[in-house]
């Protein structure tokens, strides 16, 4: 893993118009490996949209996004989305047990990776057998975090990860993000949560980067 000046994600000049509305205009953000970057901007300003542009769930009309110096448009989208993993604001659990969610789409899941992902998300190993449809909001948030980590990402994108959590659970998530960043993963958190920003962010940016 090379960690040079161009390591992580560098996005600039991102513009997107949808249904005649300018959703993003000249947005920029940088996510460095091993650092937690908080993306703080008003509601409706395009934070979620920008996160989805970074792993090409949405295709910007303008701008450039580089991952470790490589234009993301040249990377296979499935590979890109595993390297730049997204945890949505209201994570959807897929049918089956938590373990089924954790290994979803993985050709040859490594039990050690699954165990580490559970630990990183502050979940007991016994969670793996729980039916995913029966989890509380806080548990779903942490399972979604663990599920993203089983992709072995370089960058982790989180959309309002503490929005529906109580303060204690939110602190657990913040601590988990710190541990994840300390392992060299770049973390970008779109959030309104000042407490989360204060607890975990190395850097706070707006949509202008």
């Amino acid at each position: 893993m090379s960690v040079g000046d161009d390591a992580g994600i560098v996005a600039h000049g991102i513009g997107l118009t949808r249904a005649g509305r300018r959703v993003l205009d000249d947005a920029a953000v940088t996510v460095a490996p091993g650092r937690v970057t908080a993306l703080v901007a008003p509601s409706g300003s395009g934070k979620s949209t920008l996160l989805r542009c970074l792993n090409r769930l949405l295709e910007p009309d303008e701008g450039t996004i580089l991952l470790d110096g490589v234009d993301v448009r040249t990377v296979d989208p499935r590979t890109l989305r595993r390297r730049v993993a997204l945890v949505a604001q209201a994570p959807v659990m897929l049918p089956g047990a938590v373990h089924d969610n954790l290994v979803h789409g993985l050709a040859d899941p490594d039990p050690a990776v699954v165990a580490r992902a559970l630990a990183d998300a502050d979940l007991d190993p016994s969670f793996a057998t729980r039916p995913a449809g029966e989890l509380s909001g806080g548990e779903r948030a942490r399972v979604a975090l663990a599920r993203a980590l089983t992709r072995d990402p370089r960058i982790l994108l989180l959309d309002e990860p503490t929005a529906a959590l109580d303060a204690t659970t939110a602190d657990h998530v913040a601590d988990a993000l710190r541990r994840i960043a300390d392992r060299g993963i770049g973390v970008l958190v779109a959030t309104h949560d000042d407490r989360l920003v204060a607890r975990v962010a190395d850097r706070t940016v707006g949509l202008g980067g």
Binding site: N55, L57, R78, T79, R81, R82, A85, L86, A88, A90, P91, V92, L94, P95, H104, G105, R147, A148, R151
Partner: peptide, 20 residues
């Protein structure tokens, strides 16, 4: 739509994400 997005975000291709 959220489920489809979740599947795509986990690395599924479109046919796999839409299969259910």
């Amino acid at each position: 739509a959220d489920e489809v997005e979740a599947r795509l975000a986990l690395g599924d291709d479109v046919p796999t994400a839409l299969a259910p």
